[in-house]
Design a protein around this nucleic acid. Structure first.
Lengths: 401, 401
DNA sequence: CGCCGTTTGTATAGTGGTTGAACTTATTAA
DNA sequence: TTAATAAGTTCAACCACTATACAAACGGCG
């Protein structure tokens, strides 16, 4: 932030400005449109667009015959052959990889169902590297250069500045102090918390107007409960990258003991295990287990399960109300396994938000289910790579020459 | 954010860059020092500094005989005759005003003890305008041009973009839907929540290294409990400016009813009235009342009061632990009336933070008492005006010509 | 069918801000 | 007195933008 600004930075900024305009607009824009929207002159936009087209980020479309009089405009859109992002995910019972292009479209996706709990961390990392290589091959076959990779891990992660990092602890994977390499082959690899990347996925899916900066909390209810916090259109990572440890907000100071050592953590009320326990179906070796079990029973209107979900929703609502009071966000997104359960959780969550959020009367926070559902994480991971390219096109162009 | 960047913006940025360097450095810097620190060339720094000196923001000091060889450097420092900020505060039992110069030094301060609870909002605003005029006269007498004014109100405020705003509700003042004018005479007036401005004051007081961006939560325990959130060195205001409604975080979902309509809000455990009640001295017409009463009893080691403060600290700690889990901040600042009570609160707060914050083992959040104490709010208000000038010197220079 | 008006996109000169190198100034060390 | 050193200034060059003029590609109209 404390860097001087030279002529060059100016160009970098304006390249990004033009690219973002085209990227966030649902329909193709002409150079003249971009000029009008950004406030730059048509001449400047032309030279900027030339660079972006030469760098393979933008593509010129066939000039469509325009409605009114005058010379028809050549449409500009994100290049379908531009750099793509590689998203990777390690989770409790599966590994996943996906490739998204510049527009955020998923071009390829692989999910491998493998239980990670009994495996050493090294094996999981090796397996995900294999998956990544597979995905990279697909990208290469489609002629997409890969800009980088992002790996989602359900745990506390310290990111290194130039890729790689360190997983301090991932309780549900049984990981502790696992180093993550800075690169997969030639690709730099960013590690990040699962919920953060899912929140980014949600942000991208919801982005319409380039002038609006949404603020929301994405709650990811997997086996643990995490949250990704988006403030003014930006993912907030925290001072050490450990923001969003939502599962251990206190619901009742004297509540049941949590594995973290404290008492009455949210996870003890709204975690998957807690819901099953509250519904009286824990410990049974019934198939299906976990989320699916909950969903089946809820769909069958099992009274115990409906009550359990109501209680979980209330606890979730109390925690979310605290977060909204603190952060004044517009919306709360129920993600991860909460997304399919949203129909049964929403009422309780909304009730708590209404009574406990002090500003609810003026501008109530919206409660919505994640648009992407459980795929939000991998897609968000891949999207985060693409997002970086779109935000700093000059850096990408520099790698080409 | 979506504005194009012309040559002019470049200069604006670099003017701010140079000014910030000089402002945040404890000792005078030479042009050459600034060039080395910022990465700009000496030539560029020279022209920038010329503008800043001409605009009355920087002053050249007498060239001190330097230690080593070479031409002695002319020191640069913030001008003592530069623009100053006017801070105003309306609180339950007093009005305050203060004037701070560019360096943040308080040049003048007035406190008027008047109970606001029985007065109409208009009267309080008129009285504070009078105070502001008085302070502005003092500034004029000292030859300080006033850059603007900021008014702190203990309530929910909507800011208008160009000054003024609307107080939706300020429960402890008995205000509801009170409009605040956009200007006091010729001065634009910004309205803001009390805790936010106090947090800014704390931020300024703690600023040493220009390359470090602190993140902390400032808890202001006045009659109500508010919080100011500073993330990466920036005050976070929220989507509508309503962040930091700390007093209504839930401590116990089935706890005592709060005047906000919910149950078990933090204010019912750690508010001034709650502490007095818990110590068994509420309702008595003893003198002194309120904070002073609490302080006296605590100093006298009254067992009931010590227990009450311990309980309040624990509740505060639970709420703060939630905030730290969510936001991953470095520090928690006990401000407002919590500052003088910090000796009796700290242990309980720290205990809860240690057990309930999941990352406490890796990087525990620091708990500290506010450096400025109860003056943080007015001083922060005045400082926020100065801060704007320092952050956007070009805007100030433009007003001169 | 040809001309005009309209809009898009490009070319060219001009402007503002930064760089880099040379130069001046002020001081210490020898 | 001279050499070395560092601070600050001057000036040509450069780069990215703006403004203006112009070429290109279309519809509308007589």
């Amino acid at each position: 932030m404390d860097s001087p600004v030279r002529q060059h930075s100016l160009r970098e900024h304006n390249l990004a400005l033009v690219l973002r305009r085209v990227a966030t607009n649902p329909r193709p824009l002409s150079r003249a449109d971009v000029a009008a929207a950004t406030g730059l002159t048509r001449a400047t936009v032309s030279t900027l667009v030339d660079d972006l087209v030469a760098g393979g980020l933008l593509a010129e479309l066939e000039p469509v015959p325009r409605a009114g009089v005058g010379r028809p405009a050549t449409g500009l859109a994100l290049s379908p052959h531009g750099p793509c992002g590689l998203g990777l995910e390690i989770n409790v019972d599966y590994l996943a990889a996906c490739v998204t292009d510049l527009s955020g479209t998923v071009r390829h996706q692989i999910v491998r169902h493998v239980d990670q709990r009994d495996r050493p961390a090294g094996d999981a990392l090796a397996a995900v590297a294999e998956l990544a290589a597979e995905a990279a091959d697909v990208a290469a076959a489609e002629g997409l250069p890969v800009a980088g990779a992002a790996l989602a891990v359900p745990g506390l992660v310290r990111q290194n500045p130039h890729g790689g990092g360190h997983v301090h602890v991932a309780p549900n994977l049984g990981w502790r102090d696992v180093p993550v390499p800075a690169a997969l082959g030639a690709l730099t690899l960013r590690v990040e918390n699962e919920a953060n990347l899912a929140a980014l996925g949600e942000l991208q899916a919801g982005e319409q107007d380039p002038d609006v900066s949404p603020s929301f909390i994405y709650v990811s209810g997997e086996v643990g409960i995490g949250a990704g916090i988006v403030l003014d259109g930006q993912l907030y990572r925290g001072a050490h990258g450990w923001s969003g440890e939502f599962g251990h907000l206190t619901i009742d100071a004297n509540g049941p003991r949590c594995h973290c050592g404290a008492r009455g953590c949210l996870e003890q009320y709204a975690g998957q295990d807690a819901i099953l326990r509250a519904a009286g179906v824990a410990g049974e070796d019934a198939v299906p287990a976990g989320l699916e079990r909950i969903q089946r029973l809820a769909q069958a209107a099992d009274p115990a399960m409906l009550a359990a979900l109501g209680a979980a929703g209330a606890a979730l609502g109390i925690a979310l109300a605290g977060a909204v009071n603190l952060l004044d966000v517009d919306a709360v997104v129920l993600g991860g396994s909460y997304a399919p359960l949203a129909p049964w959780l929403r009422a309780a969550v909304e009730e708590e938000l209404t009574t406990r959020v002090i500003t609810a009367g003026w501008s109530p926070a919206e409660v919505r289910a994640s648009a992407l559902g459980p795929e939000a994480t991998v897609v968000g991971a891949a999207g985060s790579v693409v997002r970086d390219v779109l935000a700093h096109p000059a850096a990408w162009l520099a790698t080409l020459s």
